[in-house]
Design a protein around this nucleic acid. Sequence first.
DNA 1: ATAATTGCAAACAGTTTGCCCCTAT
DNA 2: ATAGGGGCAAACTGTTTGCAATTAT
Lengths: 138, 138
Amino acid sequence: MRMTRQRQVILEVLKRSKDHPTADDVYDRVRKVLPKISLGTVYRNLENLTADWVIDRIENAGGQNRFDPTTTPHNHFRCVQCGRVEDLPFEVPLPEQIPDETWTRERKVIGSKFEYYGLCSECYRLNAGKKIFRKERL
Amino acid sequence: MRMTRQRQVILEVLKRSKDHPTADDVYDRVRKVLPKISLGTVYRNLENLTADWVIDRIENAGGQNRFDPTTTPHNHFRCVQCGRVEDLPFEVPLPEQIPDETWTRERKVIGSKFEYYGLCSECYRLNAGKKIFRKERL
DNA sequence: ATAATTGCAAACAGTTTGCCCCTAT
DNA sequence: ATAGGGGCAAACTGTTTGCAATTAT
C-alpha cells in the first residue's frame, strides 16, 4: 500500500474520530483538508484499510456501513433510531469457548460479535413516551 | 393487517425456512406458488411483518438483509464468505444485566445481539488452506 | 519506469415509493 | 363501501467500477 496524501488524511480523520463515522462522514471531514478528493477514493481507501486490518468496518445491511479506528476487540451500542454507534464504556463478560465441539469442527469460527441496541441518549430524550421502534414494543 | 393471499404465502414460506432467507430468496420461493407476485410486495410484507414482530430482520451484516421466522431470543452464526446465517444449536451464556447504571440511565437499552462468525462448512471445505477473509488472517 | 492510486462518471445492488387498480373486511 | 394492499415501474441510497491521467516508490 502506497501512502498517498489522500490515504494519509483519511486515516488521520478516522483515527481522530470517536463516533464510528459513515463513508459520507469521512468524506465530509476529509474534504475540509482535501476539497478535491472524490467519494470513490474515500470508499476505495476505507475498503483497503479494512482489508489490511488497519481499521474495522461495522456492517449494516440496508443502511450505511460505519468505520471503526479501533481493531482490538471491544463492543458497541447501536441506536436503532439514528444508527449511531458508541463504544461500551465497560467490559462485557462473554463466553471464552464454544461449548459444542462437533459444531465447531465442521466450520471455521473466526470470532464473535456482541452489541447492545436501543435508543441513544439524544433519541431517547426526543422520543420520550413515544413508541417508535417497530410497532408495539419499547 | 389484512390477510391477503400474498401475505399468507410469504409468511408460510418464511415459517418453513430454516436458512434465514434474503428478500430475493423469499421472492423466488413465493413465486413458485404465486408467479405474478411482485418483488415490491414481498418487500412491503417483510417490512410489515417485521414491524408487527411476526418475523425478525437480521440487519447487521454486509449486503442484503435476511429474515428470521423465529422472534424469540436465539443466536446466530454468520458465514463471512457467503453470507449464510445459521441458528446456533446450543445456548450462549450471556450477561443478564448491564454493569454500568449511569450508562444505562441515559439511554433506552432494548436488547442485545450476539453472534459467531466465520466460514460455514461448505465455504470451509471449498477454501481449505486459502486466505480469503480480508487479507492476512484466517 | 511502472504499478498503484486518483477523480470523475456511469453502473450496480438492494430497497422504497407513487400511482392506479383490486380485494378482504 | 372502503381502507388496506397489490402490480408495476421509476426513484433512491449506498457502494463499486472502468478509464484515462497522475503520483509514490
